[in-house]
Structures are given as C-alpha cells and as structure tokens.
Design a protein around this nucleic acid. Structure first.
Lengths: 158, 158
DNA sequence: GTCATTGTTTTGATCGTGTCAAGACAACTG
DNA sequence: CAGTTGTCTTGACACGATCAAAACAATGAC
C-alpha cells in the first residue's frame, strides 16, 4: 500500500517524500479536508513539519493533477483526490461539510450556458448549498446551533 | 432617481444614509465589484469614509436581501444587485472578470442532484470558468499570459 | 420643529488563510 | 556512492475580512 502511494506520486512526476505520503493518506482517509486539517492529521507521524510544508505539498499535488482544490464560499480551500471525473459538491451551510455528487446527468448536458459573452469556457462547476442531516436534526431539536459543530467528517487514524 | 434609491433601501428595512446611497449607485453602475472597488468608487463623493464602512454597508445589503454576495475561488467577495432570479456566473480565469448568465434552462431543471446524501438542498450555484475575450486575445498576441497557472484544473470532457 | 431612541458609521486593532524568499536537507540519476 | 535537482523548513509578510467601542445621524413620537 505504501508502495502504491509512492508509485502514485512518482507517476505524477513528483519525488516521493514522507510528507507527501502522509498527506496523500490523510486526503484519502478524509477527503475535502482543508490545509489545517491535513496538517493536524500528518503532524503526529512526522517528526518535524509545518503548515507551510502542507501548503507546499497540497500545491504540488494540485498542480500535478493528483489532487483537486475546491473553494466553497466562506470556507478555506479544501482538497480531494477525485480528479478528472467532473463531479460536483454538496456543501452544508451549517457546518461546512462537503460531500461528493456525481455529475448531474452523466455528461453535463445542462452545463452549456445560453449566453457565453464571448468567453472560452473550460469548465462548469456546480455547488449545491443546503444543510446536512446532522445540522437539520440539531436545528430541529436544540434550535440555534449554527456553525457550532466541528468540520471533521471523520475522526480516527488512517 | 435618488428618491427611488432611498425607497429601495427603506423598503429593505434599512435606514437611508449617504454611504448606502453611494454604494447602491456604485453597485448598479459596476456589478460584481469587490469591496475595495466599491470603496474606491464611493470615496470621492463622501467626505470621510473607510473600507470598514463599505464592508458594513455591503454586509447590511446582503443580509437584507438587497444584494447578493458571490465568492469565486481566488477572488475577493463580489457583490451584485440582481437577487432572487437564480442566475449564474461566468468567471474569467485570466483577469477575474465576472459576467451574468441567465439560468440555463429557465427554472433550473437540471439542478437536482442525483444523490442528495440526506442534505436539505436550498440552492444550486453554477459557475462557468473560462477566459474572457480580452484575455484570449492578449494570450494569442503576446503569448505571455498574465496568470496562466491558476486554479482551474482542466477537467477533460469526453 | 424638537427630542429621544435606535441603528449606522468611524476608528483602530486583530484574526485567519495563504504566499514569498532563502538556506538546509533529502530523493533520484549515473 | 557522489552530484544534481527538487523539496522541506523557517521566518516574515500580504491580503481580505472581522470585531469592539465610541461618535454620530436617521427615523418616529411628541
């Protein structure tokens, strides 16, 4: 498994290092994490590391096409390993949680704008805003619980 | 004109003040402006004002449903007065320019995700990424694109 | 018209996310 | 196993945005 991770990184044209392996595993374990969450996940297993190192690794992954960077309004940038399949996202307005959604109609038929204003369009990005199950429940029960819940979608060790 | 602006603000439940009138006019004149652009537009006509005042006004407008706040990845927040008509946006990856696009099929028929993961969906947001006419021309002519390496991870459409 | 209430603006400080630059260091090549 | 090249570390910093408190002005009652 470690070998496969290494191969994945090498195949992207990047050198294999401990921080990169750790970030890759963290992202596979908890997709849609932001830089700080990734940092907290990799920190214990790396002797000495820094937030900047994580930024560097995430930037390299993104540039190499290994990861995708999404930036929902109001959240810091988040990263995921699903690339190249034009999928979209559900974002919870309560806790910021992000979930994947497959492309709406397979080949994105409805994503051709009626007026292009002369733009050379490269990509259509769809974001669904709503409230996740937890937030709906908490809301119905307690009342004002906006923004209170933690952002972590899972919690354990990779 | 001025009276209509005042009525618009009053109708939203807000007090009418000089900064608000100025910001309203600035936004109508230049939609999709960010806070700093608005500030620079209203600065000359207000004796003393500050960026914070603009932030305050824009925040009040947004909360009152008078303006809409959009936050394209890589840009500061932008504001527009078109609200309540579920339209979408074209964003230039070169210069950050934003243009409006009417809802793709009128009533947003294609914006129902296949899997909702239990989310209570409130809204679908569509952003088209591409390059505006100016940027395409500049690119073809000069070659050195201003900010070629940007956020857009080109997802190859079959 | 005048006054009090309430909301708005101003001022200044501060936070969070993310970037830049330089030196130390480790991974791949031959 | 050594050299080259890219990566990590460290520290400083830019930028957008927010918060708190005091000065102030717009609305509504009298």
């Amino acid at each position: 498994m470690n070998t496969q991770d290494a191969d994945t990184i090498r195949a992207a044209g990047l050198k294999v290092t401990a921080p990169r392996l750790a970030v890759l595993r963290a992202l596979r374990y908890a997709p849609h994490s932001d830089a700080d969450q990734v940092f907290r996940m990799v920190e214990p297993e790396l002797t000495a590391t820094s937030r900047q190192a994580v930024y560097g690794v995430l930037g390299a992954f993104t540039e190499a096409g290994l990861a995708r960077r999404i930036e929902p309004a109001g959240s810091p940038a988040r990263y995921e390993l699903r690339v190249g399949d034009n999928h979209h996202h559900l974002v919870c307005t309560g806790c910021g949680r992000v979930e994947d959604v497959d492309c709406v109609h397979g080949a994105a038929p409805c994503l051709v704008p009626s007026q292009t204003q002369g733009f050379a369009i490269a990509e259509a990005e769809v974001t669904f805003w709503g409230r996740c199950v937890d937030c709906v429940v908490t809301e119905a029960a307690g009342g004002t619980s906006d923004r209170a819940s933690d952002i972590a979608t899972a919690s354990a060790r990779p």
